[in-house]
Write a protein that binds this DNA or RNA. Sequence first.
DNA 1: TATTACCATATTGCATACAAAATCATCGAC
DNA 2: GTCGATGATTTTGTATGCAATATGGTAATA
Lengths: 240, 240
Amino acid sequence: METLYVSRYEAIGLNVTEVRALKSADNASLVEYLVEAIVDGVMEHRYAPGQRLIATDLAEEFNVSRAPVREALHVLAGEGVVELVANRGARIRKLTLKERIDFLEFTEALCMLGVRRGTDRIEKGDNREKLDDTFVEIEEAWSRRHAGDFVDSLYRYHIMLNHISGNNFVEFFYRRPYIRFYTIMLADLTPGGHWDEYISNYREIHQIILTGNQKKAVERFSRHISWVLSFMESENVNLN
Amino acid sequence: METLYVSRYEAIGLNVTEVRALKSADNASLVEYLVEAIVDGVMEHRYAPGQRLIATDLAEEFNVSRAPVREALHVLAGEGVVELVANRGARIRKLTLKERIDFLEFTEALCMLGVRRGTDRIEKGDNREKLDDTFVEIEEAWSRRHAGDFVDSLYRYHIMLNHISGNNFVEFFYRRPYIRFYTIMLADLTPGGHWDEYISNYREIHQIILTGNQKKAVERFSRHISWVLSFMESENVNLN
DNA sequence: TATTACCATATTGCATACAAAATCATCGAC
DNA sequence: GTCGATGATTTTGTATGCAATATGGTAATA
């Protein structure tokens, strides 16, 4: 039964084992594979923001026909990762500074839910250990001053916190391609010395979460958000 | 130049004028049109949750080929409005009670950002009047006990608040098909007498927002979220 | 030189074609 | 009657084809 899929997948250069793994993993179709591949391409800076994506070329690159490529491009357009204009094809979206700042505000606001619910459940299972491990990765990336890894580990911290909180929608949301896309674009924000205060805030908040004191955690995170909003506001002055 | 599109659109029964309006409005392709049409179908309860969507049938219904239908279905699958399993086609997604509750938590948490930022900007332009008008619609729908209209007006209140707050990402997010889809599904929640307290909370919060007192608004909304979480928690006991 | 008109080429949008896979009804064994 | 096998039918996934449209370059004009 599995082997029947091979004919469709080997066109893109996957061998039988890989195809089986792919299929059993998530029942992925070529389209899902292409969506992943294109997003990965952006993550790895192989496709630059603003760059045009030509269906024919992608089809050739992945050794498939234009049909699944077009379907994938439509998915990504719905996601806001590419911009799709009728009869003019697709481009990787270019995010303005304003868009990236708005997104940062958005995720910070969302993280509050994780803080609220997460503190309630931090005692259960190995939640405390898992969350703490992820925070270590943040600290580690920060000590290396690696913007990409820093943003990435923060992203995983948020996911972990919301996973602990037990709200599946938040997790579903965080894993969407456009969230990954927006998140990676935050790495270019580099708002100078502000990150110093940013991570110091998170360090405090993380410690409070570990104690399981919801009231204190919410209060501290609320102050953090106010701070984010205020410095964003000032940062924003000289921009569109 | 415009007329050249006609041949593509008249297949789905649109006349030249309609096509021109459509095109000039948002440069929509057939796919975008189909996405809208299918989402509308769900909103109008023509397609029920769990119902299978057969590409061939949809193509016939809209008088187009399967290619754009499939592209639209992939967009909707990415959105989480339909469920797409390889070789098994698409179904309108069925949301569990848990999923709907998680979503409600999610939007409430998000609304906090609007409350925070909105109070800052409530004085500008005709923000106060527009927000108040939307709240009147909530009250009106509530007085008629019309679940659909109630949820819909609440949705528009959230959008309005976030529009005032000036965060474009939140607005972009709220207008996504899957958010509309999830929101409409909230109408079936009908958590008994709880809505009474829910709207009474919002009435208070709305009044505080109008005064522009950010600190008080945030504090009051924070209490509201705690209340939502707590009653959700108890409501949740006997369910998956 | 700068600007426009024009044509060749590239690319898109949608339709169609066909093999692979799932679904469904029928039948037979128990 | 229930269960499982078998084959016809339906439906999917992808490839290909073709007309509509955009793009880019060249030549003609001012």
